[in-house]
Design a protein around this nucleic acid. Structure first.
Lengths: 179, 179
DNA sequence: ATGTCCATGTAATCCGTTACATGATTAT
DNA sequence: ATAATCATGTAACGGATTACATGGACAT
């Protein structure tokens, strides 16, 4: 369970509905830990059972009611305890690298296109990060909370730049093989 | 199923036992797609059911018999077909970045130690990659197969160097917050 | 008309991890 | 003696993905 803690971390900022959380896991914290809405709803049910969040329904007219989840004292303690446990190595799983590794057995033309697609994805992600940095962190006095998020964001920015350069190089190396 | 294809890719090089494959997924191809021996054995059973590999037992005296798996024609076709399917984005899941993101709620002293541990892991991995490059790829005439593996390895080397620099910067940024 | 957003979930399946299990050989 | 290596797997559990399901509001 680390999705649980990631949810608790989000709820430390402010109480949120499952829907809000799902969107958060598709952006911001989702840049470092991705989760689908199904996972979020299931995990919320577990956190409630364990008393780490409290949930109450808020009536809305015209649209479905929201169920807003708040982190409890026990929840905050759980986050602190988790923060002391050693982290796992992030699991590496990249089909693109496997395809490069298996170059002789793949369709190289398609592979080149897939490298271009990946390149675009990283360029977009980088643009998103830079927009966020500009809008929320540049030239401001930051709280500790914000400084932490800025460090994570800085890691993300570096990473995307590196991926872009790396895949550009991979494409060049592929072309050299053809020649 | 992409572990299946990764196994087939390995078997394209040469027939292997489950044990051999498990070791391969703990090194070489495992640098891009990690899998435990349990996963490998289960997946091999499925590949056999689908006729993508053929398995035969080889008697050995003094130690357990080996079961050697060979990729079939259908298996090779499956690899080619897979190579044309769009790749998924690699799943991002890194507790360390989540902890940085949640800086205010974590034990910062422990976090610093965990950053150092991660740094060491990346340094070791980089050393491993450089050793492999030196030993198998440097100053040689390479086949297309080897050139593909060299591209993947080059990606890996770049990546590790970048991670090292990034986490070093993160540690500095953390120290700046304390000051 | 068509699609997207809001908002919630269930069900089935698949993938990954941890633990359990066996047993001889070889190195320290 | 102790541990590592060779070599195979099963069982249980938990995490992740895909598909299914509902239904009003609002924009094009």
């Amino acid at each position: 369970m680390a999705l649980g803690e990631a949810i608790l971390v989000c709820l430390t900022d402010r109480p949120m509905s499952g829907y809000d959380l799902a969107k958060t896991f598709d952006a911001s914290i989702g840049f470092f830990w991705r989760a689908s809405h199904q996972q979020v709803y299931r995990e919320l049910a577990r956190l409630r059972e364990r008393g780490l969040v409290e949930s109450r329904e808020i009536e809305q007219s015209g649209r479905p009611n929201r169920i807003v989840h708040t982190i409890t004292k026990a929840g905050k303690q759980a986050v602190k305890a988790w923060s002391r446990k050693p982290v796992r190595r992030p699991s590496v799983k990249d089909e693109l690298l496997v395809k490069l590794y298996a170059l002789e057995d793949v369709d190289v033309e398609v592979l080149r296109e897939q490298l271009e697609v990946r390149l675009d994805q990283h360029r977009e992600r980088l643009a998103t990060y830079l927009r966020i940095k500009d809008k929320f962190y540049e030239g401001r006095n930051l709280t500790v909370n914000q400084k932490g998020k800025l460090i994570a964001l800085t890691m993300g920015i570096r990473n995307e730049k590196e991926f872009i350069a790396a895949f550009e190089q991979a494409i060049v190396m592929l072309e050299d093989i053809d020649a």
